Simulated assay, not measured.
Amino acid sequence: MSDAGNQARTGAGKDQGPDVHPPKRIAEATTWKGEQKAGMDTPVLAVLAALAGVYIAFGGLFFLLAQAGADAMPYGAAQVLGGVVFSLGLILVLVGGAELFTGNTLMVVAWAEGRAGFTPVLHALGIAYVLNFLGSVAIALLAFWAGLHMAGDGAVGAAALRTAERKSGLGFGPALASGVAANMLVCLAVWLAFGARSAADKVLVIVPPITAFVALGLEHSVANMSLIPFGWLVKAGAAPEFWAAAGTDPGTYPALGFGGLVANLVPVTIGNLIGGVLVGAAYWFAYLRPKQASGR
């Protein structure tokens, strides 16, 4: 293995300079990480993917808390606040260590480099997606059973309903386009985190892109795996006192249900795949393909 490859694995040979490694070093680290993820033992991958779903769901719940009563704030300020707190999810994934479907679309770099086969990459992405979903839904259920929707005199539950209804009612085209843009920003956050030298550096580079995607109202499939089910649970199972406190009723949310969940996740997942592949392929072309052409 080359010295660059060893440095990407171990972090040895760090140069003096900025807190984030240069793009070429990040590309090499992304290749190695993609190879590692594609070859991961399936039970380990499943556990780490379930954890990623849990972590992103925690970020989603934090987002809903920030949105409770957001009508009293200017729209932009409320959205930015929601984005900042939602960053918790990806921070837990990347600093704590977990396998997130959307970020793992960067495995395209390892595939393009010939370091991971197409079938292992698809297998790893599929396992991550399914277990992300299970982990996300588990937290949505726990949050509902814990009565989180009643917090703030029903304000958190009302925010969950509004958020889930908006996402469930998106058309295929807007959801697809939103999914592309969202995962470009998520993968840029992951890319920068791969180049960070410390946990603090990772946090600093993760927050701005994640804040941007959430504040812009873009669509992230794994986030929606908890946000939509939680809103659906509130609609289907909240007690009458919730509806009285929140000042709304179930009929206000006609799109919210299983059909709305599927109608959102299908185009958003496709868009997330496209967005992640675009980012990974662009950086592979810029920093790794010329090496291949020169007979590296």
Rank of each mutant, 00 (worst) to 15 (best):
T42I: 08
A46M: 15
A49R: 05
A50T: 14
A52E: 02
A52V: 05
G53E: 04
V54W: 03
F58N: 08
G59S: 09
G59W: 00
F62N: 14
F62K: 08
L64I: 01
L64D: 06
L65T: 13
L65N: 09
Q67M: 14
A68F: 07
A68H: 09
G69K: 11
G69P: 07
G69W: 03
A70W: 00
A70C: 09
P74Y: 09
Y75R: 10
A77V: 12
L81Y: 05
L81T: 13
G83A: 13
G83Q: 09
V84Y: 02
V85I: 14
V85S: 07
S87W: 10
L88K: 05
L88M: 15
L90V: 10
L90T: 02
L90D: 10
L92F: 10
V93N: 08
L94I: 12
L94R: 11
L94Q: 11
G96T: 13
L100Y: 09
F101E: 08
G103C: 09
N104F: 08
M107A: 07
V108N: 05
V108W: 01
W111H: 12
R115D: 13
G117P: 03
F118M: 14
T119Y: 04
P120S: 07
V121T: 05
L122H: 10
L122T: 07
L122C: 12
L122I: 12
G126S: 11
G126P: 04
G126N: 10
I127M: 12
I127Q: 11
A128H: 05
Y129H: 13
V130C: 13
L131H: 04
N132I: 09
F133K: 02
F133P: 06
F133R: 03
L134Q: 11
G135Q: 03
G135D: 01
G135R: 05
S136R: 06
A138K: 01
A138Q: 05
L141E: 10
F144A: 14
F144T: 08
W145N: 13
A146S: 14
G147R: 00
G147K: 02
G147E: 12
G147I: 14
L148T: 13
M150Q: 12
A151E: 11
A151T: 14
D153L: 08
